[in-house]
Amino acid sequence: MLLRCPSSAFCGHHRRDYIFSSGFKAPKTLEFAFRMEHINRGKNESRSSSLHMRKQISCCQSSSINHEDLSRKDELLVHGVSDTIVGVLGGGQLGRMLCQAASQMAIKVMILDPLESCPASALCYQHVVGSFDDSATVQNFAKRCGVLTVEIEHVDVATLEKLEQQGVVCHPKASAIRIIQDKYLQKVHFSRHGIPLPDFVE
């Protein structure tokens, strides 16, 4: 006798197996249909497993491609390695931030600072320990750099003017640093260029 589970009509996950009472022999046609149903079910499960595996492979490939794209984007941030060494007089906090920004563009920064453990020393290309307001030290330092700049205004302007005459590229120029060093000259300079200022005296 062929039996059906009463809840099979309402259950969405019911296994569609045929149950036979003991001693009952199913007809060959029904037995054949029963076997074919199990074979088809196995094929469907195999297809489902294969599809799931393909999705996983596709996800992995997509993840790999996205990772490569991100790597390429990171590479675009680097503008190229430069052989020119930027010399910086002073290695304080501003010098450290300068070194950090320069490293992202593959620019070599050499600093001159009297403190061995100055803030910029950990990030710069090379740290020369020496005074940045000593004329001889600054001139020797400039020979090792392609361009010279400052991160502090308390430098020897006369030495920078001499270096400019010798063809050393300095940014900012010594004349600008001379104005920066004197607050009165700063205000006079601003006033001449029409920049509003409060009243000031020498």
Rank of each mutant, 00 (worst) to 15 (best):
S8N: 05
S21N: 15
G23N: 11
G23A: 11
K25T: 13
T29V: 10
F32N: 11
R35Y: 10
M36F: 03
M36L: 04
E37M: 11
H38Q: 13
K43W: 08
K43D: 05
K43V: 10
N44M: 08
R47C: 01
S49C: 14
S50I: 12
K55W: 12
Q56E: 15
S58Q: 12
Q61E: 10
S62Q: 12
I65P: 00
D69R: 09
E75L: 14
G80L: 07
T84Q: 13
C99T: 00
Q100V: 14
A101S: 11
A101Y: 02
A101V: 04
S103T: 00
A106D: 07
K108R: 03
K108L: 02
I111W: 01
A120R: 08
A122S: 08
L123D: 07
C124D: 01
Y125D: 06
Q126R: 14
F132I: 04
A136N: 07
A136T: 04
T137H: 07
K143Y: 00
G146H: 02
G146V: 05
V147F: 07
L148D: 00
E151Q: 00
E151F: 01
I152H: 14
H154S: 15
D156P: 07
V157E: 09
A158Y: 15
K162Q: 15
L163Q: 01
Q165D: 10
V168F: 01
V169Q: 13
K187Q: 02
